[in-house]
Design a binder for these strands. Structure first.
Lengths: 185, 185
DNA sequence: GTCTATACATAGATAGAC
DNA sequence: GTCTATCTATGTATAGAC
């Protein structure tokens, strides 16, 4: 019964964050208004400011993904397979937080930084597993490939990608990724 | 001497369009203001409105690329080679008009339409040259790959891509593209 | 602790002077 | 044909009532 003090606050905060993520993911930072977020969350616009202080801060909080649980699902086979699993996850249900970041990465400086950091991390991890002087470049290209497919599929909605089953995309993309990573089938 | 009527007008219009393209390409549609465009072009903000009627119309005009002169440069070898040449051109000097469109494609509906149309056209052209039922999907994936590299390199500025010479990117990307297009080396 | 009312800034668009 | 001045709308942010 006494749980109504911070309890209710956390509940509102969560609803606001969920609404913010959805709107940021759908329209990007600039076109998302505090008012719209508040309306979607069923709260007063002033409350959003009260909780988060600024639109930018709301965005930062909304974009903070859950701990990103590294490669827990598909038993991590080879490197290309793991990268494709990541993409598979992305093509299916990329988290709203990630979508929000990706949506704004070309136009909002803060989102661009977040994207560079996230992609840079993946490039470093992949590059560390590759031999050769051009390891980092190969890793960057492979990461960019997945970025391109994700953007085309999730954010631009290119029809051929939309219509294709995930396994089909996987099947066609795998040899390309293997070639890029310098692995032999 | 009598050339000062429409002549001067065209000159101003051109300066405005150039400034608009640069700003749209740099910051995207939302963050670009009529006032900033006018200042960069050295004209009055009201003049921009006088000429183009609205910010949206200015954007549309600014994004209209030159006739896109299809594949004139590198003597068009194989399909992968031609696609890479396009990318090569992109990595070097992608036109400000294209950059402006790409920059805003994730957040501005009009730019998204333009991007879908442009990419869809390329997918159709590439797909038409490929055999098999999955021709369009392969073409869409190949196009997305180049999109991803372009975005990573030109718009996000991923360091490993920035630092790499164009030929190196070409060399590493070619086998991947060949694999994707289903061609044999 | 939540909402009403409002201040303040920005920016797109317009009217009219020069 | 170009600029000054302004209108109007939107949206972030704040102050104060309940």
């Amino acid at each position: 019964m006494t749980i109504t003090r911070a309890e209710r606050r956390l509940r509102s905060e969560r609803r606001i964050l969920d609404a913010a993520r959805a709107l940021f993911a759908d329209r990007g930072f600039e076109r998302t208004t505090i008012r719209a977020v508040a309306a979607a969350a069923g709260v007063d616009p002033a409350l959003v400011m009260q909780y988060f202080g600024s639109k930018q801060e709301l965005f930062s909080r909304a974009v903070q993904a859950v701990p990103t649980k590294e490669g827990e699902p598909g038993e991590a086979r080879d490197l290309a397979g793991r990268m494709l699993e990541t993409l598979g996850m992305k093509l299916g249900g990329l988290s709203p937080a990630s979508l929000a970041m990706l949506r704004s990465m070309l136009t909002h400086p803060e989102a661009a930084d977040a994207a560079r950091t996230a992609l840079g991390g993946q490039i470093d991890r992949v590059g560390a597993e590759l031999p050769g002087d051009d390891a980092r470049l190969r890793a960057a290209l492979a990461t960019s490939v997945l970025l391109g497919v994700t953007v085309g599929h999730q954010l631009l909605g290119l029809d051929p990608l939309r219509d294709a089953p995930r396994e089909e995309i996987d099947r066609l993309l795998r040899p390309a990724l293997l070639a890029l990573l310098g692995e032999r089938e």
